[in-house]
Amino acid sequence: MKVLDLQCRQGHVFEGWFACEEDFRSQQQRGLVQCPLCADEHIEKRLSAPRLNLGARAEPAAASAASANAAADAGAQAAWLVLARKLMANTEDVGPRFAQEARRMHHGEVPERAIRGQATPHDALQLLEEGIAVLPMPLPVAAKETLQ
């Protein structure tokens, strides 16, 4: 098993597990490798080094700080993914009808409920100007699926 450090164009860093280097290349060429946060298919390998535990020596301060920053970034990404999955599980997807459904609820034409969907930036701005609270929030494809 080969564990690769990967990164998308948005700077999201994640691990990918593959049978071998050729398996990674094959999946990447077929568009099967995506960022779990933003679904970007433009994925590049990052430089990574094997971790060798050769004793109980203390890490230098700079390496320790870099490890802490990487852990914080990974934790933030994981928390975002958990939040996105909760949002997906607890809202109704109204797709491209989002602006119309939000207006119908605002005017009392239909019962209020938690919805999500797609709206153009223009539609979202109009909703806000009409006093309808909306929150643009890109949801990763990975929020809909179980990660393997």
Rank of each mutant, 00 (worst) to 15 (best):
I43F: 09
A65K: 00
A66V: 11
T91D: 06
R51E: 15
Q29N: 08
E109A: 02
N69I: 14
R51D: 15
F98M: 05
Q10N: 13
E21I: 02
R9N: 13
D5Q: 07
L32H: 11
A68D: 08
A102S: 10
K45A: 12
A19S: 08
E101H: 02
C35K: 00
E130M: 11
I43C: 12
H42D: 14
V134W: 01
A142S: 11
R97I: 15
D23H: 08
N69W: 08
D5G: 09
Q29F: 02
A76D: 12
A70I: 02
G31S: 05
G16Q: 06
N53Q: 13
K2W: 11
A99Q: 07
P36D: 13
P60M: 05
L139E: 03
A58E: 12
R113E: 07
N69H: 07
T120V: 02
A61H: 04
E44A: 15
R113K: 15
R116A: 13
L37S: 05
L83D: 11
Q28P: 00
L87N: 15
A133G: 08
A63N: 10
A124T: 10
D5W: 05
R97Y: 10
D93N: 14
A63Y: 01
A102L: 03
P121R: 07
E145F: 03
A19G: 07
R113Q: 14
D73L: 06
D73E: 10
P60N: 12
E130G: 05
Q27G: 08
V33S: 03
A102M: 05
E44R: 08
A58M: 06
R51Y: 14
I115L: 09
A114Q: 02
V134H: 00
V82Q: 14
E59M: 05
R9C: 06
V94T: 07
E41P: 13
P50S: 12
D23K: 00
E59I: 01
L4A: 07
A58G: 04
L4C: 09
W80T: 14
D93T: 10
F98Q: 01
S26K: 03
E112S: 10
L4E: 07
L47S: 11
A114R: 01
A63K: 06
G75F: 13
L6C: 04
L87S: 09
L6P: 04
M88E: 15
D40W: 00
S64K: 09
R9A: 14
A124P: 03
H106F: 14
C35T: 11
M137F: 15
A66D: 11
E59H: 00
P60Y: 01
A74P: 06
E59G: 04
W80K: 08
M1E: 01
I43S: 09
G16V: 13
E21K: 00
L6K: 00
N90L: 12
E101N: 03
R97L: 15
E129F: 06
E112I: 04
N90P: 01
A56Q: 12
G108Y: 06
C20T: 13
